[in-house]
Amino acid sequence: MMLLRKIFVIALLCISASLVAYAQTPTRTQRPRLTAFGVEERYVLHPGDVLGIEYRYTPEFNQTVSVQPDGFISLQMGGDLKVAGRNLEQVRNLILTRVRARLESPELTVVLKEFQKPYVVVSGEVAQPGKFELRENLTAIQAVLLAGGFKDSAKSSQILVFRKLNADTAEVRSLNFKTLKRTSDLENDLTLQPGDMILVPRNRISKIERYVRLASLTTFLYPLMR
């Protein structure tokens, strides 16, 4: 009997020690599992896009609106609303917030009917300067070829690519087509992004700042963007 009591006491002590150790062990925070594709990016609206706003129960308020140059749309119900830079679901929620003051339990759908295709601008000493649709993985050299290629007067060793950073500033990259052609190192060609502007100069530009004010590019580029 005494032996059984000793075994029982020892077992209780072991269990108690295990519980204390478990209680003192820091709890590991479970990290969220990430999907292989990450977060899905949705199209955001730009000036010139056309939206269809359709009410399920009050179709008399349906309308088609264009995003104005300042990024606003004008609603029959709700007045002016800034939508540029937002996706369709965000715009739908904004409209619902506005119209709930006049409609009870409104249901509506926002449809993108027309949108401005992404583009790049090529100007300067090329055969056909202008605005060109941005295709997937289009590079600076390919854009120059779409513009008809270099003129004889072009300085192909200093192709300038301007990339807008904000409303006032653009980043500048310089590419040397002669080096790319001679070394066949086309991996150093620059993949373009929507709104990039390419300038092929006539004469060598001895110095170019890394960042420039967009207003200074108006003479060369903006007439082509209209």
Rank of each mutant, 00 (worst) to 15 (best):
residue 137 N to G: 06
residue 104 E to Y: 11
residue 189 D to C: 07
residue 86 R to A: 12
residue 146 L to K: 12
residue 224 L to H: 15
residue 195 G to I: 04
residue 188 N to W: 01
residue 39 V to L: 14
residue 128 Q to G: 12
residue 68 Q to R: 15
residue 121 V to H: 07
residue 107 E to Y: 11
residue 167 A to K: 10
residue 9 V to F: 10
residue 27 T to W: 07
residue 69 P to T: 05
residue 55 Y to F: 08
residue 197 M to A: 10
residue 8 F to H: 08
residue 226 R to K: 13
residue 195 G to Y: 13
residue 7 I to F: 13
residue 169 T to P: 05
residue 211 Y to K: 14
residue 48 G to Q: 00
residue 153 S to W: 01
residue 168 D to P: 06
residue 129 P to H: 04
residue 47 P to L: 05
residue 122 V to I: 09
residue 186 L to R: 07
residue 44 V to T: 14
residue 25 T to P: 07
residue 61 F to I: 08
residue 117 K to L: 15
residue 217 L to A: 00
residue 149 G to E: 05
residue 104 E to M: 03
residue 154 A to V: 03
residue 200 V to P: 04
residue 117 K to Y: 12
residue 217 L to G: 02
residue 77 M to Y: 10
residue 25 T to N: 10
residue 185 D to Q: 12
residue 105 S to I: 07
residue 140 A to F: 01
residue 57 Y to W: 11
residue 173 R to W: 12
residue 208 I to Y: 02
residue 223 P to G: 00
residue 74 S to E: 11
residue 3 L to W: 10
residue 145 L to T: 15
residue 221 L to K: 07
residue 150 F to P: 01
residue 116 Q to F: 02
residue 180 L to S: 02
residue 58 T to R: 13
residue 7 I to M: 08
residue 43 Y to C: 06
residue 177 F to M: 06
residue 29 T to Q: 11
residue 130 G to D: 05
residue 27 T to C: 06
residue 36 A to G: 05
residue 114 E to T: 07
residue 8 F to V: 15
residue 23 A to K: 09
residue 184 S to T: 07
residue 96 L to M: 02
